[in-house]
Amino acid sequence: MEEFQIIDNCLMVKLPREVDHHRASYICEQADRYLLQENVHHVIFDFEDTRFMDSSGIGIIMGRYKKIACFGGKVYAIHTDRQIQRILTVSGLHNIVKILE
């Protein structure tokens, strides 16, 4: 199950096991709720539990990036496995998302 947590000025989004269109709108809605309410500058996506992601996940990341980038916010990805890294690379998103080991 996805989880949202605020640590300092970062929103930590723990993504579910499968990130697809079915789950995407819920994750977007919830993440935006936190982005509006709290004093959040950066967003961290945690892929620890994620075993599958398609272009819907790219949409989630791109959408959040657009919302925070104009205020100097950054997007990070942690616990990415090889497949997730591949998806981020193929989509060109590795240029705007910092992948942390």
């Binding site: 269109h21 995407a24 709108s25 977007c28 272009s55 949409g59 989630i60 791109m62 193929v90 989509s91």
Partner: peptide, 11 residues
Amino acid sequence: QLERSGMGFAF
């Protein structure tokens, strides 16, 4: 408006 990436066919 759906915040999709437009990457479907590219993938």
